[in-house]
Structures are given as C-alpha cells and as structure tokens.
Amino acid sequence: MASLLNLVHHPASTSLSHSLPSSSSCCFFPRNNINVFTPKSKNIKPSPLIVKSAETDESITIPIPSNPFDTIPNLKLNLLSAVSGLNRGLAANEEDLQKADAAAKELESAGGLVDLSEDLDKLQGRWKLIYSSAFSSRTLGGSRPGPPIGRLLPITLGQVYQRIDILSKDFDNIVDLQLGAPWPLPPVEVTATLAHKFELIGSSKIKIVFDKTTVKANGNFSQLPPLEIPRIPDALRPQTNNTGTGDFEITYLDADTRVTRGDRGELRVFVIS
C-alpha cells in the first residue's frame, strides 16, 4: 500500500445535500453538519445522505439504517459520518483522526474477525477510497517520510480507487491527478494506475507486490498513448527503501464497505464503486 500513499493533496471544502421523506424526525451531528432522519412510519424508507465536495464535486452516499436497533448498519453510519466531511482525510485534524479511529474500532469489534478464506469474493470489484488517516500528515509519503506539501505545489489529488480481481490476483491502485502547468497552459489531468499482485497471509491480511505504473492523460491530451513506468529491479533498489511490497489487514468487510489497517497503522475506509 506504500505506493498509494505517495500522493499529493489539496484540501477541499464540503457541503451536504440530501432528499428526505416528509414524515420524519431528526437528530443532529454538529461536527460534520449531518442531519440523520428516521421515519416515524415503518412504511417510509429513509433516503440516503449525500455528502458533496463543493470544490471537487466529489460525493459520498451514506445509507440510513431502516432499523435503529440493527447494530452493524448504525455503526457503519457512525463511521461514514465521522469521515464524510474530511475530504478523504486531507482536512482531518487530531480530533478528527481520533473520532474516525474510535468509530472504526466499534464497527470492527461488532463485525468480528474477517476470514478471507470464506469471504474472498467480497473483495472483488472497484472500491472508492473515502478516508485515509495518512493523508492528514501533509507530506508526500503519507505516514511515511516525505517532503512537505502545500498549496504552491502544482499537483492536486483527485479520486482514488482500488480495483481488485480475485481470479487474476490483480490489485490496482488508481489515482486521478491534476498537474499544474506554466501559465497560460491549462492543467493536465492524468490517471495513474499502480499495478500490483496480491496474496493472502493468514485469514485477514493481504500482501501486495508492485509491478508497474501506467500513466494515462485525460481531457485534451487523452489521445496520447499511456506511459508505462516499470518497476525498479530488486538488485538496484536500496535495501533500506524497498517500496515494492506492502501488507495490510482487512478489519471489516461486507458487500459495500471495507475497513483496512496498514502496516504502519494507517486506517482506510472504502466503499464499493
């Protein structure tokens, strides 16, 4: 997962919009400005919350549990509410990190141990990153050492995805980036795909091995062919900086939500895309 963290960020403001049934009661989460509505009538299905970024136009859909006494859906709601206004962790402060970690631990405890030998098929698909605790570090390396970043650095982080194929053992980190260009040239939008292979270690841990990086231009430059950057051979890689492999533990997993803990303690939350 180390390669995923070597990214740049640009914090964005967020706003909230959602549609609601007419007959409902409300409780308020002041930190993230989220109204959670519970229908008074059992025949009314609550509408999901949609958290939308005003700057990047990114949105996160948060389903509202229909049964307030169903523990897992409510704990998932608590976790998604805790991270929803943090721009994937880029805008998180220490208090935000602690709240997200506490909400994740409650969900992990209620969900029990993950057994990928039985639930490996749940990994299949394209997952969208909605939170990483490492992004709050303000460095290019996330929780790892890296140069500091700020608004003057002409790179903006867009969407981050993981694409997992359980048959081919492909594990791709897909990152949208906007690269600044000298005036009057417009910014260049690219998608970087960091290809890995994965294997299971025990019941809930995954090891990934980096293969190559492919960069594809978007927008006005989409006609350009992809640029492939191969992995540095092991013989040429410094022994103290082997970034070709990494491992993380999946601590919660269901059909639409995944929580992981990285090899350096990074908490990450994904939703199926």
Results as ranks from 00 to 15, higher is better:
A2L: 13
L4P: 03
S19R: 14
P21F: 07
R31L: 09
N32G: 15
P39D: 10
K40C: 10
K42V: 11
I44A: 13
E55L: 04
E55H: 04
I62N: 03
I62L: 12
P63H: 05
P65R: 10
I72A: 02
L77K: 13
A100E: 06
A110M: 06
G112L: 06
S117N: 15
L123F: 05
G125F: 07
R126W: 00
K128F: 09
Y131K: 00
S132K: 09
S133T: 02
A134N: 05
S137R: 11
T139K: 14
G141R: 06
P147A: 11
P148M: 07
T156W: 12
I166M: 03
F171I: 06
D172F: 05
I174L: 11
D176Q: 13
Q178H: 05
L179E: 04
P184S: 07
P187A: 07
P187D: 07
H196Q: 07
H196N: 15
F198A: 04
S203K: 15
K207P: 01
K207H: 11
K207M: 09
V209E: 12
K212T: 11
F221E: 13
R231Q: 14
I232D: 10
P233E: 10
L236S: 12
P238M: 05
G244F: 01
T245W: 01
T245A: 11
G246I: 03
Y252C: 02
G265R: 01
L267K: 05
V269K: 00
I272F: 06
